[in-house]
Design a protein around this nucleic acid. Structure first.
Length: 639
RNA sequence: GCCGCUGUAGCUCAGUGGUAGAGCGCGUCAUUGGUAAUGACGAGGUCGAGUGUUCAAUUCACUCCAGCGGCACCA
């Protein structure tokens, strides 16, 4: 007999080997009907799992949160079966659960297209209707390999071959079809339901390696019920409305065109926003003791060879041939330039730490498939800086950077910041000894700052380990922005040194850091974060003056001039349109404040203030209104 | 770069083997209207680029370019 404990604290004795269904049935018949899985000592298992030892058991019902994962996993299997029934000869590979759904990678004889989706979905519904039981079987390793090889499933056979020798090989059968799988699953395909939808068709390399063949991946979403599926699809539509590419067009912020793929044409409104970010960061950096410089956009290839960039990234650099046959590279980074500035004139240890900042525009030939609006471009502006310091100063300087970074994100409303620590990559410069030292130094920073972090193994820069700051936006998406990178290599490679207290030459350590990261990307993130409804200090147009009748035009123009004189970004709408129309249009344009003026205001020297999203307006004297706006448009660091 | 899809007016999109259409926007005129659409008229397109098939290509085929969704990449 074994002792089973339930979540409510009660315990019962059962025969060893009892399965979940029997346990559920022993409690009540209705429970056994609703039960779809078990949680044994906190681990999800099939309802049919036989228990041989004492355990804490929880019966999982179909409506429980844990069941959704099973539904998604099952749906992946059902899709794979549907695909193989419809397209014989298609090989299956892997099909995991992901957020909101699942995907499955196939190697088809003929490529699928999204036009096949309705057919596949129909077949999936058929399979659900068949209500085949999911049956777990444990197979001998060699039998399994032979089976999959005999059935033309080379990928599956490869997967089994690569499993550790002592691992149990389990297979799940559903009707005529089966798949290598760890499980667990619901009791039968009928329990899965039909709240699923195939969403995307994509290419994906076998085992994520671009040297391997490319498979076809079908993504789908699945939920416990139709209502949740609909809610999810609605959420996607809402997210699409915040897409920075769409808002950029609607608000006339920027555009892209064929002749400059991956490079932004900033329009006046977008550039206004961009410049606000730079001014803000400039103030913050100056306060933190940085000096600002400007280094050449193009430098000779030899410099990039010396820095090591050419060897690692030469294929991704824009180069240009001069008439006298020299090769210049558009800078993909600012660091070599800053080292040249550091080297100019002898530096003493008393000059350190020296913090050199630049809003440098860098160019990188990113692969065409990587380009994505403002988020991934081929030329972008970094709020880049390099802190040249002694080894002893590293920890303190990095802690200061971390503090500054967090302050800035907070001021932009990002409270949820993740830090990733990336250690040495396979391809790198510098000795292991130096890497040991620099990784330890960065970890010390994390410890000293007392922040949480996660390891990003092997993802460091080729010259040093790094910290990456990942922001989570208003709709839960993650974006990598800031980065701090320790560099014990570049100063030496480029011959930078300082004179120490001992009168000898020493190599400085370099800390690379960017906080916005790419200004272009950060702008994109802000657009999506605010859905274009920027806080007043960032809004490209802060006020639109809208006269109601043309007799109030002169008053409106005078008002606009007063606003401009007060440093407010103010436009006036003198078109021959009704006030309803003007309000509607500027609301759509997401202008935060409208100053509505008619004859009443003109006579009384007042203005009717209408804030975006508010139904009611407020009447104030012109002086009062402008004074209030001047306060309201201050940047967070100026308040 | 790789896989799939897309490219028609400023924007959103319809359409056809016989050189194109809507709504919004834009312009003109009338209207002077008090907080999310006043009306009438009008202008606007080498149908992404090139090659081929055809009497005829925006439509069919191929190549290229760009974009979209992923994968890979991201100093």
């Amino acid at each position: 007999m074994i002792n089973i404990t339930f979540p409510d604290g009660n315990a019962r004795e059962y025969e060893a080997g009892v399965d979940g269904l029997a346990i559920a049935l022993s409690i009540s018949k209705s429970l056994s009907k609703k039960a779809v899985a078990l949680k044994v000592d906190g681990k999800l298992c099939d309802l049919s799992k036989a228990l041989d030892d004492d355990a804490a058991v929880e019966i999982v019902l179909r409506d429980d949160e844990e069941a959704v994962e099973l539904i998604r996993h099952d749906t992946a299997h059902i899709m794979a079966q549907a695909v193989q029934e419809l397209f014989p000869g298609t090989q299956v590979t892997i099909g995991p659960v992901i957020e909101h759904g699942f995907y499955y990678d196939f190697d088809p004889k003929q490529p699928f297209s999204t036009e096949d989706f309705p057919k596949i979905e129909k077949k999936m519904r058929e399979i659900v209707k068949r209500n085949d039981k999911f049956v777990r079987e444990v197979w001998d390793r060699d039998v399994a390999i032979k089976y999959f090889k005999d059935h033309g499933e080379a990928y599956k056979a490869e997967l089994i071959e690569d499993l550790p020798g002592d691992e149990e090989i389990s297979v799940y059968r559903q009707g005529e079809w089966l798949d290598l799988c760890l499980g667990p699953h619901l009791p039968s395909t009928g329990k899965v339901g039909t709240a699923f939808k195939l969403t995307k068709l994509a290419g994906a390399y076998w085992r994520g390696d671009h040297n391997n063949p490319m498979l076809q991946r079908i993504y789908g979403v699945a939920f416990a019920d139709e209502k949740s599926l609909k809610a999810h699809l609605f959420m996607l539509e809402e997210a699409e409305k915040r897409d920075h590419r769409r808002i950029g067009r609607e608000m006339d912020l920027f555009h892209f065109q064929e002749e400059a793929p991956g490079s932004v044409f900033w329009h006046a409104k977008g550039w206004t926003l961009f410049l606000q970010l730079i001014s803000y960061m400039r103030r913050r950096q100056m306060d933190a003791g940085y000096i600002e410089v400007n280094s050449p956009d193009m430098m000779e290839k030899s410099l990039w060879e010396a820095s090591g960039h050419w060897e690692k990234f030469g294929d991704n650099m824009f180069t240009t041939q001069t008439p006298d046959d020299k090769t210049f590279c558009c800078k993909p980074m600012n660091c070599p330039g800053h080292v040249q500035i550091f080297k100019h004139g002898l530096k003493s240890y008393r000059d350190l730490p020296l913090k050199i900042a630049e809003f440098g525009k860098v160019h990188r030939y990113e692969p065409s498939g990587a380009l994505h609006g403002l988020m991934r471009v081929r030329s972008f502006t970094q709020d880049d800086a390099h802190v040249f310091c002694t080894p002893e100063q590293i920890t303190e300087e990095c802690i200061k950077i971390n503090t500054l970074m967090m302050t800035i994100y907070k001021e932009f409303g990002f409270e949820d910041v993740k830090i990733k620590f990336s250690d040495r990559p396979e391809v790198r410069v510098g000795s292991d000894e130096i890497w040991d030292k620099s990784e330890a130094a960065l970890k010390a920073v994390l410890d000293a700052a007392g922040v949480e972090w996660e390891l990003n193994s092997g993802e460091g820069a080729f010259y040093g380990p790094k910290l990456e700051y990942v922001l989570r936006d208003a709709i839960g998406r993650d974006w990598q922005c800031g980065t701090t990178q320790l560099d014990f290599n570049l100063p030496g490679r480029l011959g930078a040194f300082y004179i120490g207290a001992d009168g000898e030459k020493h190599e400085p350590v370099m800390v690379h850091r960017a906080m916005f990261g790419s200004l272009e990307r950060f702008t994109g993130i802000l657009i999506e974060q605010h859905a274009g409804r920027f806080p007043l200090w960032l809004a490209p147009t802060q006020i639109v003056v809208a006269p109601i009748v043309s007799d109030a035009d002169d008053y409106g123009v005078a008002l606009q001039e007063k606003c401009l004189a007060a440093g407010l970004r103010c436009e006036i709408d003198l078109r021959n349109e009704k006030i309803n129309y003007k309000v509607r249009e500027h609301s759509h344009a997401k202008v935060p404040v409208m100053f509505v003026v008619g004859m009443r205001e003109a006579e009384e020297g007042t203005v009717s203030i209408r804030r975006l999203g508010q139904k009611h307006s407020k009447v104030m004297s012109v002086e009062e209104a402008i004074a209030q706006m001047v306060i309201d448009t201050q940047a967070p660091d100026q308040v």
